[in-house]
Design a binder for these strands. Structure first.
Lengths: 214, 214
DNA sequence: GTCTATATGCTGATAGAC
DNA sequence: GTCTATCAGCATATAGAC
């Protein structure tokens, strides 16, 4: 598990607690996105979770703890949803896998991506450590794999770090800018087949951009 | 000028007013990004602008007016910074121009891009009208131009709307995720040559992705 | 575990002296 | 135009009855 804060939550159990905590986190995630951290009041989170305000504070002690719990879930999701880049896959399959994984995550869990994006845009106050350690290491390792393929003449000579940023940005866009995309396309919601369509589009362009298909 | 709200600001003049208003808007932009709309207090904006709080409210009447003024500036910048897509340019030059314009805007004015991104991610509360009218029309018009080139066999048969989203997301990423990118690359600031490097990288990949170069 | 009542502090906004 | 003083409202968080 990726640690977002030093403090470890002492896990208490119980069925009511489990269900309440889940409801609170879902409600809080939505409120934090729409209203921002300061704008989301404990009362509004409680209302959305259909619980009295005091109960919310009973489960999480204070507002910041709620936010930390959400960030923790977001990073865990990031960790499991980011397809891996393995040397033995070769460049084409590696790129296909990672685009598919990222697009799927964007469509299936847009709110996690939005919370993450808000955090980074606002200066990564809570995620500086995550970026400095975990993320930096991840990018450097994967860039090295790409560089190996490039040196081997298996793909075009493009900057691997920029390539990773390109894949991240173009896939996450469908989660973070969901509202704008739906409005422009005059649609109410994404549908299942959008996942496939976007995956195909991005895979097609980026693979060709890397000279991995005609 | 793109209108963000129905209310028109009655323009008052005066040198002190002009300078104060500019300082306030610069300070407010930074505060709104870091703290969010609700989190940015009029006091914090005044402190950053080095003015008494009452003066800030004297110039802008209330907090929401400050925010509207910033959004207005952001949209004007969007309008002038988004390179045009002209049929007579042909696909290659059109894509080169628009990527160059967007990358330049991202590096020269990251805060405008961040304010815009925050607005959209948080549900486009203040920009729904802008997206529904102006933006939707813009995308449809430009998609039609791309489609013309595609039908003419001048470029690969890719979805033009997705292509526009790809160009937007991949270029804006360097503004919005500035903090993350700098942290990963272990750098303190962007430098002038980064603009050229990123422009070249994105142009290279996307042109090849559209079969517009080898 | 659940909920009511309340303490304490900070916010946006205004009134009015200079 | 500029600034000080102040108010009314809402926020988080806690204490303690049930």
């Amino acid at each position: 598990m990726i640690k977002v804060a030093a403090k470890e939550t002492t896990k208490k159990t119980g069925k009511i607690r489990e269900k309440s905590e889940y409801n609170i986190l879902q409600a809080a995630q939505a409120e934090f996105i729409i209203q921002g951290y300061k704008g989301a009041s404990v009362q509004s989170i409680a209302d959305r979770a259909q619980l009295p305000k005091a109960n919310v504070l009973y489960y999480f002690k204070n507002k910041e703890n709620i936010y930390h719990a959400i960030l923790q879930l977001t990073l865990d999701m990031w960790d499991q949803g980011i397809g891996d880049i393995k040397l033995e896959d070769g460049p084409q399959m590696a790129i296909e896998k990672i685009i598919a994984a990222k697009v799927k995550m964007s469509f299936k869990n847009p709110n996690a991506s939005k919370i993450y994006a808000l955090e980074i845009i606002q200066g990564a106050q809570h995620l500086k450590d995550f970026a400095r350690t975990y993320l930096r290491k991840w990018v450097r390792e994967k860039a090295k794999v790409f560089q190996h393929w490039i040196d081997n003449g298996e793909m075009a000579d493009v900057n691997p770090v920029n390539l990773i940023f390109l894949i991240w940005s173009s896939t996450q866009h469908y989660a973070d800018f969901e509202t704008q995309i739906l409005t422009i396309m005059n649609r109410a919601d994404y549908e299942e087949e959008d996942i496939e369509q976007v995956t195909e589009f991005l895979t097609d362009i980026i693979l060709r951009g890397c000279k991995l298909k005609q």
